[in-house]
């Protein structure tokens, strides 16, 4: 690990100011992903700004009837919150499908959104990777890629976003609130938060350097049956091959978001309009234009079949 200086801050303003005055700074909260990457020298910050004690650890009701989830709320606490379990069951289900109990006790809401891909070539510093080292190439294309993206990928990168939580938040129309060093706040719909890899896969979100996530808000509950079905290589504590997050209403309409298929949680509103007609129609729309590799074509039928199972489960 490269050496770094460390400071703990007690306000968002102090955090963004510390970032702005220190070249090479990074925010750290739960640290479960950042420290892992620092050990491998994939991340090499020269200064860490510890934001883990900011007073952003509350879940509050909003005037619109939704919830505002502080950026520092731990994954365990978010999954356990009585309002989340009752009104946003998909979010609890997605959270507890991810990582381990130990990691969920540390990982934060904001950090979960910002975690990096688990592409093995991103992690292997002996291999080319355009995300880790722009311009070096992509070893996953033509390599071991049964875990990789089938939609939204580019010739430069076929990595997937690893978060389960983000899949639920996409289906729930979450909004990400941020503040920058100038004190400017903005609200970014999660649909617009992640950047397509294109030729610049190292740029993963629309956040500017030093912009700090302060909260994630959920609109008022939409009811329905909430199901998160994650398919993985072992029964627990593994990343998704594919995941289907769905909210299905009594009349058969609903929302569908996918994990494990692209650089972001994958939802196509026009495709889910076909939900009353069954899983195939929705899967066809969601995966239109899919481009598979020699190892991951199985993901297309797996999405359709998993969604069929989810729809059947929702009908009870």
């Amino acid at each position: 690990m490269k050496s770094f200086t460390y400071e703990r801050v007690d306000s968002a303003a102090a955090a963004t100011a510390a970032f702005a005055r220190t070249p090479g700074a990074r925010f750290i909260a739960g640290g479960t992903n950042l420290l892992d990457l620092m050990k491998l020298e994939i991340e090499t910050p020269s200064h860490l700004v510890d934001v883990s004690r900011l007073a952003l650890d509350k879940i509050e009701a909003t005037a619109e009837g939704g919830l505002r989830i502080g950026a520092m709320v731990r994954n365990t606490d978010l999954a356990s919150d009585a309002r989340v379990r009752r009104d946003y069951g998909l979010l609890t289900r997605a959270l507890v499908a991810g990582a381990s109990g130990q990691l969920r006790n540390k990982a934060t809401t904001a950090g979960n959104l910002l975690q990096r891909t688990r592409c093995p070539y991103f992690y292997d510093t002996n291999q080319p990777c355009n995300k880790r080292q722009p311009g070096s190439g992509c070893a996953a294309i033509g390599g071991f890629n049964r875990l990789h993206a089938v939609v939204g990928a580019s010739d430069a990168c076929i990595a997937t976003h690893p978060s389960d939580m983000a899949v639920a938040m996409r289906a729930l129309d979450a909004t990400i609130e941020t503040v920058d060093a100038a004190g400017k706040v903005r609200a970014i719909p999660i649909a617009d938060f992640y950047r397509a890899p294109g030729k610049t896969p190292h740029l993963e979100t629309v956040l500017a350097p030093g912009e700090l996530i302060t909260a994630v808000t959920l609109p008022k509950p939409v009811g329905g049956t909430h199901i998160y079905h994650k398919v993985r290589d072992r029964a627990s504590y593994a990343f998704a091959l594919i995941a289907v997050g769905a909210i299905v209403q009594r009349d058969g309409t609903g929302r569908v978001a996918l994990g494990g298929v692209g650089y972001k949680p994958w939802r196509v509103e026009a495709a889910e309009a076909a939900l009353p007609r069954g899983a195939k129609a929705v899967a066809d729309g969601l995966l239109a234009g899919a481009k598979t590799t020699h190892e991951n074509a199985y993901k297309l039928p797996l999405v359709e079949r998993t969604l069929a199972g989810v729809v059947a489960q929702a009908k009870g």
């Binding site: 460390y6 750290i28 640290g31 479960t32 420290l35 892992d36 860490l48 365990t76 109990g101 130990q102 990691l103 006790n105 540390k106």
Partner: peptide, 9 residues
Amino acid sequence: RRINSCLTL
């Protein structure tokens, strides 16, 4: 709370 002591400073 249980945590992984290897992944925290």
